[in-house]
Design a protein around this nucleic acid. Structure first.
Length: 769
RNA sequence: GCCGGCGUGGCGGAAUAGGUAGACGCCCGGGACUUAAAAUCCCGUGCGAGUCAAUCGCGUACCGGUUCAAGUCCGGUCGCCGGCACCA
């Protein structure tokens, strides 16, 4: 370990697809490469690694189609990616490469899973899951976008399956709270908070006329007096027990089976039209009004949120209002301020028709009601989250085998840690099955094993882990990629501590980023890592679209291949252009014409070194301004303006002449952006050492001082002319000089100066009457 | 519907804390070099008037406000992008 201060800069390791690196990758990669290079020049020991997130479906599908082993496809793709990354001159720590499909790597992915299992954070349960009809595989909630698979776009349907789950919900609170400790861009923080979806309210029970009760969760306990009916979700467990009392059981069961066929998305689709069936013969008692209210089943109530049942307050909830209207149910206004005959009123107001909370505002009424429910043993305060546990099993081949066996006597038993890694077995066919079983299930001599606990015959888990498993902890592996006694060497983690700066795509905010924060917190809890959070800082780049403003895709024919750009213009030009293309955080369209401008800039820098040098710099002011601006802008990801400033400097040097020192400095600050050109010219000029190994240059504020300033002269706030004044002239002098100006004299003719405002070294505004 | 972000020339985009709008680049027009073209270099380039000079209007989505001064702040409207969405 070095005695220098450390700096850990991280990019999201790529998935080595068959298409190779695309220009989309070059934006975040180049940005972090510039930062890593600058940090090295600033004297840091920099960790800037790359690896391969190599498990996953596209590779497997390609392997199936072409009858090759995914392992071989992966190796080929990685070789291609590596060559491309090298041709882009990225200064990665190539000796630290990691590969999630390497058994020495996934050994530790499995090890983490075993630790989670041992602590009750991994469990298997039968539940309705998202089944992708294209991938023939279960998806996590986070992977379903608009009702289709985020990866392949196929329809996602609901299927009852027994799945391994990770209790990310147990970390929901900390995943929100600890965002306060990290420097993430705001939109990432809000998106994560929204996804976790914390809400405050109460859970309370409604007694039933047939005995027993139904629990509900509400964020509006203040409206309890207005609860005129109840709704339970069609899948609710309570329905089974109630069945004998339900008079219209046929109708209810028909509704249940109809609802079961719909996916969550389809249910949402029919947003406007509420459906449902009353449970005839069942009545619930509103605990504050003591009146009997009807109970319905309806699919607008989700089984997976809260208790799967609600108290309906039609006067103050839009969905309940619609439902009540359709079914002719009574509404009671309990919060004043709206017109409940026209719409549900969800705003603030004063409690009315509400007994002991009458006259209170919403906030106070909530508190009072929760206190009352608690005193009377009816309910209690409750926090709820939208976040659900992470569906962790996948029914595919190309993933980490889940290291669990099932024993008739002992249940689920993890594989002994000394037996890890549990290797992915060779298999005849990787083809996914419609039955929903992993291809591993067909290898009977692999499936049949013995229980690690009791030695009896047992069966292996045949599902594999999702792609998000290996990527949830890879940043730790880089610290000691060859360590075989721990997932990360204790000395290495003590030195590297955590990632200082992590840049990646917004599309990973609720997937990879959330998952890896969860795993990291778990590793913190079991004493593996010293920090609560994996990444101290997180930034995000905008997307690169095609020339036509559309997302790049083969079918649109608007894909830009970085290899072609490098062949035509060189790697430095590509690096420069992708940074100059626009605001780093905004979406940008590729423009092949504009690439030329960056090449021209580099050519002109070369041209400058061919001209005779002058002995003393005549551009020191711009030079130092540039040093400052480039340094500051890199830190703020404003690469476009940093490059613009270097162009300005070049223009001035071309005009007025450059000294060797001017060129030395220009090449030094240019070298993180365009390392090849910078180094070539560095050598050509006979400068000592390597450009990339220079100290980052400091600007000298004294050299930035101007002796004269151009002062804008306004009359009544409108610019009329400019005057030149010595720097830091007194306000009176500036006004006097402005009034002496020929043009101003003309305007001032017949008027008197009533007021003047001077902004030092910048502007004077004369108010005349 | 809710939560973020954004709206500036022909185009990509600049404008630290309100203070000379349009930096830098692209495209385009003119010129030099060349037999010619490409490349390169020089000049011009927000829009509209103007004896094409001086100069004068108008301009940062739209309407209004605060201010000596608004792209920037405030209120409202419209439009675009991203995320979430029957989450009780």
């Amino acid at each position: 370990m070095s005695s220098k201060p450390k700096y850990y800069a991280l990019i999201e390791f790529p998935y080595p697809s068959g298409n190779g690196l695309h220009v989309g990758h070059t934006r975040p990669f180049t940005a972090m490469d510039i930062i890593a290079r600058k940090r090295r020049m600033e004297g840091y020991d920099v960790l800037f690694p790359i690896g391969w997130d190599a498990f996953g479906l596209p590779t497997e599908n390609y392997a199936i189609k072409n009858r090759v082993h995914p392992r071989d496809v992966t190796a080929d793709n990685i070789n291609h990616f590596r060559e491309q990354a090298k041709s882009l001159l990225y200064s990665f720590d190539w000796e630290r490469e990691v590969n999630t499909t390497d058994p020495s790597y996934y050994k530790w992915t499995q090890w983490i899973f075993v630790q989670m299992f041992k602590r009750g954070l991994a469990y298997k349960t039968k539940m309705p899951v998202n089944w992708c009809t294209g991938c023939k595989c279960v998806l996590a909630n986070e992977e379903v976008v608009d009702g289709v698979c985020e990866r392949c776009g196929s329809e996602v349907v609901r299927k009852e399956k027994s799945q391994w789950m990770l209790k990310i919900t147990e970390y929901a609170e900390r995943l929100i709270d600890d965002l306060d400790e990290v420097d993430y861009i705001e939109r990432v923080k809000t998106q994560q908070k929204n996804w976790i979806g914390k809400s405050y309210g109460a859970e309370l029970g409604f007694k039933l006329n047939v005995g027993g009760e139904i629990k509900v969760y509400t964020t509006r306990p203040d409206t309890l007096f207005g609860a005129t009916y109840m709704v339970v979700s069609p899948e609710h467990a309570v329905l089974e027990g109630l069945a004998p009392h339900i008079e219209n059981l046929d109708e209810v069961q028909a509704y249940q089976s109809e609802a079961a066929k719909k996916s969550d998305f389809e249910r949402g689709e029919l947003n406007k039209v509420k459906t449902g069936v009353e449970l005839k013969g069942i009545k619930a008692v509103n605990p504050v009004t003591n009146t009997e209210i009807p109970v319905f089943i309806a699919d607008y109530v989700l089984s997976t949120y809260g208790t799967g049942a609600i108290m309906a307050v039609p006067a103050h909830d839009e969905r309940d209002w619609e439902f009540a209207r359709k079914f002719g149910l009574p509404m009671t206004e309990v919060i004043s301020g709206g017109k409940i005959s026209e719409a549900a009123y969800t705003g603030d107001g004063i409690a009315v028709n509400s007994g002991f909370i009458n006259g209170m505002r919403v906030t106070e009424a909530k508190t009072k009601m929760i206190a009352w429910l608690t005193e009377n043993g009816i309910g209690e305060e409750k926090v709820n989250y939208k976040l659900r546990d992470w569906v962790f099993s996948r029914q595919r081949y190309w993933g980490e085998p889940i290291p669990i066996v099932y024993c008739e006597h002992c249940g689920y038993v993890p594989i002994d840690e000394s037996d890890l890694p549990l290797l992915l077995p060779e298999v005849e066919s990787y083809e996914p099955t419609d039955s929903g079983e992993s291809p591993l299930a067909s290898i009977t001599d692999w499936v049949n094993t013995t229980c690690p606990k009791c030695g009896a015959a047992a069966k292996r888990e045949t599902d594999t882990m999702p792609q998000w498993a290996g990527s949830s902890w890879y940043y730790l592996r880089y610290m000691s990629p060859d360590c075989d006694t721990a997932l990360v060497d204790p000395d290495a983690i003590r030195y590297w501590n955590q990632v200082d700066w992590y840049n990646g795509g917004m599309e990973h905010t609720t997937l990879h980023l959330l998952y890896s924060r969860f795993w990291h917190k778990f590793l913190y809890d079991i004493g593996i890592v010293p920090t609560k959070e994996p990444y101290a800082k997180r930034t995000s780049q905008g997307m690169i679209l095609g020339e036509d403003g559309q997302k790049m895709s083969k079918s649109r024919g608007n894909v830009v291949n970085p290899d072609d750009v490098i062949a035509e213009y060189g790697a430095d030009t590509l690096r420069l252009y992708i940074m100059f293309i626009g605001d780093f955080e905004q979406t940008a369209n590729w423009n092949s014409n504009a690439v030329k401008g960056c090449r021209r800039f580099l050519d002109r820098v070369v041209g400058l070194t061919n001209k005779p040098l002058i002995s003393n710099s005549v551009c020191e002011r711009t030079l130092h301004k540039t040093i400052k601006k480039v340094g500051d802008d890199i830190e703020q990801l404003k690469f476009n303006t940093a490059i613009a400033q270097m162009m300005t400097l070049l223009n001035e040097l071309s005009d007025k002449g450059a000294s060797l020192e001017d060129l030395r400095i220009l090449l030094t600050i240019l070298s993180p952006f365009a390392p090849q050109t910078a180094q070539e010219l560095w050598s050509k000029l006979g400068l000592p050492g390597a450009a990339a190994e220079q100290q980052w240059v400091e600007f000298d504020p004294a050299k930035m001082v101007e002796s004269e300033k151009t002062i804008a002269v306004q009359v009544g706030g409108k610019l009329k002319t400019t005057i030149t004044m010595p720097t830091d002239s007194d306000d009176e002098e500036v006004v006097a000089a402005a009034m002496r100006n020929e043009k101003i004299l003309k305007i001032a003719d017949g008027l008197t100066l009533v007021k003047s405002i001077v902004v030092k070294n910048k502007l004077v505004n004369l108010i005349m009457k």
